[in-house]
Design a protein around this nucleic acid. Sequence first.
DNA 1: CCCATATCAATTGCGCGCAATTTGATTTTG
DNA 2: CAAAATCAAATTGCGCGCAATTGATATGGG
Lengths: 152, 152
Amino acid sequence: MTSAPKLSDQLCFAAYSFTHALNRAYRPLLEPLGLTYPQYLVMLVLWEADGQTVKEIGERLKLDSGTLTPLLKRLETIGYVTRRRGKADERQVIVHLTEEGRALSDKAAGIPVELGCAMGAELGEIANLRERLLALRDRLGETGCAVGEPET
Amino acid sequence: MTSAPKLSDQLCFAAYSFTHALNRAYRPLLEPLGLTYPQYLVMLVLWEADGQTVKEIGERLKLDSGTLTPLLKRLETIGYVTRRRGKADERQVIVHLTEEGRALSDKAAGIPVELGCAMGAELGEIANLRERLLALRDRLGETGCAVGEPET
DNA sequence: CCCATATCAATTGCGCGCAATTTGATTTTG
DNA sequence: CAAAATCAAATTGCGCGCAATTGATATGGG
């Protein structure tokens, strides 16, 4: 017997393989820019607000320094960002766009359109899905089921 | 100006960070079984049908041998599966559950419930999201936007 | 029958993603 | 003010995910 898990698992796998499909779809679009998808996300964050710390970028993208530090070093090597210790607080590293990095946002402008097109979904559908995924994500971030965990 | 990409990108990021949140939620549940989430997916596939080839597992999970070969070797090392060359066709490797591997499905039975609970979503919501993610994923798998690509 | 082609798995190389630890700076506290 | 606690980033180690290549087997055409 032991009917194997089927239920909500399928949602997990759906999200998992959807994400990989997205990655694959992005790859050819990002390759001309010399970016991977996670690097592209970091650039998006910086295009929105230049000069953020590693920590701030990590909070936005839900990534830690173990992931970001080498990624940012690569972006620095390509020449899209600079990394400098903060003057006020020398613990933190502040990431700035270079001219080239800033200019890249023009070349990247068409990417979301292409992708939306590839998915063939309307804006409403996309926005709706996004909301629900983010809501579930945030609920997952909490303690969970209230099964254990006496307190704090 | 150059208003940075915002549109469907947000869906992509939502899926991306939702997937990571799922991974994090699964980790403590799978750790007692000694499995990672991708390893758990392989076990799910095998619990459904034992004795599949690497290729068949890859088709179900949308993974290639570069990912699966080392993963399956790890599962073999732990003692959950065996890997044998096929007799009829020696190119393929057939993956079988061990006793221990088969028995594991009992211990894994509670996982989807815990996760569904952690997400706090009803079954309908979950099924609906799953359908739409899979549909989008499959649309992404196709050529895309019909922008270029003369033929074959 | 034999060779060209196709197929399957394994390997290599690179970039995440994250847990755990380390290093160094800053803040808190006694 | 000094010791302790906290905090930011870097480092280490491991497991994916995938492109590209390799090697071995199978298959189909001439």
